[in-house]
């Protein structure tokens, strides 16, 4: 793979290797420090947060106390937020990934009237500012009495245009037309071909879209911010942001500063773990989408 590797012994090559690795290491420090800060901040008392150096631990190790506060504050509302986030994101992600897969399959493997128009619509949808959608959606759903329900967050999230494009590109590559025609010659109906031949072949793409949709929902802030106003329905993002503004405005007491960072730590650990475990999928899938583009 590496062309330079073939001349791996030249002095110039060795110098470049040191230099470039040093540059990447510097950027790694930049990437890593904020995460490290979360860890140290989550282990400190509020006094220490202000009085000790931010990028190292304080003598007084307060992580367990902070966790206890985090999970007991407002009758354990943080746990509720985590559960809400998991619920909203997983239902939305599974639905969105399935719908995107069906749609991507239709775009990749059929010619039909209106295909170009529909593709253009889906692509154009990416340009619409969130407020342009979420605010009228809020007004509509509140007319239907659906705001402040999980559906208000889940239903709009089932539309995931990037997933459609990714699946389209993936399926186009992964499943040949002849294969589908072989299924037709064998007498299988179109749905049967999809479920018994195609679906297993497009699993890697599906997994990627699932992960991307999951992350997109996990990260979503604006939609739940607008749709939900009962704190016990918030996902973590909205909840933590609210805790933070209470902390900073002083209304909830200075006590909350480390708790916010502890909450941040608790909520990013599972996502980062998931990312590390599933890296095989997202790396492959993002590649497919990116290359096709």
């Amino acid at each position: 793979m590496s062309i330079v590797g073939k001349s791996a012994h030249s002095a110039k090559f060795r110098r470049n290797r040191w230099l470039l690795t040093a540059i990447l290491s510097l950027y790694f420090i930049y990437t890593f420090l904020p995460l490290f800060y979360v860890i140290t901040a989550a282990t400190k008392s509020n006094q220490d947060l202000f009085s000790t150096f931010g990028l190292w631990f304080a003598a007084d190790f307060q992580l367990w106390e902070n966790l206890e506060t985090l999970f007991t504050i407002q009758d354990g509302i943080f746990l509720k937020w985590m559960a809400n986030t998991a619920y909203y994101s997983s239902v939305s992600a599974i639905g969105a990934a399935l719908f995107a897969t069906f749609a991507g399959y239709a775009f990749a493997k059929y010619t039909f009237f209106g295909k170009k128009l529909m593709l253009a619509l889906v692509l154009g949808a990416v340009m619409i500012p969130q407020t342009a959608l979420v605010i009228p959606m809020f007004l509509m759903l509140s007319n239907l009495g659906l705001t402040n329900t999980p559906l208000a967050v889940i239903l709009p999230s089932l539309v995931f245009p990037p997933g459609v494009f990714l699946m389209w590109a993936y399926i186009d590559d992964a499943i040949s037309n002849e294969l589908i025609e072989a299924g037709r010659m064998d007498g299988a109906g179109e749905f049967h071909i999809f479920s018994s031949i195609a679906f297993r072949m497009l699993m890697p793409g599906f997994a990627t879209v699932l992960i991307l949709a999951f992350v997109a929902n996990w990260n979503n802030y604006f939609l739940p911010l607008v749709m939900l106003n009962k704190p016990d329905m918030f996902p973590i993002t909205v909840g933590l942001a609210q805790l933070y503004s209470t902390a900073i405005s002083g209304t909830g007491g200075v006590l909350l500063f480390t708790v916010v960072m502890t909450g941040a730590l608790v909520s990013i650990v599972p996502v980062i773990a998931a990312f590390l475990i599933m890296q095989r999928f997202w790396q492959g899938g993002l590649g497919a989408g990116g290359v096709k583009a």
């Binding site: 040949s176 002849e178 294969l179 025609e181 072989a182 010659m185 007498g187 297993r200």
Partner: peptide, 21 residues
């Protein structure tokens, strides 16, 4: 009629075998 109803079989250039079966 659809392909199967014509009672024909086809062999494709790429073989088009079902890879997961």
């Amino acid at each position: 009629l659809g392909p199967a109803e014509r009672q024909l079989s086809m062999v494709f250039q790429s073989y088009a075998l079902y890879p997961t079966k």
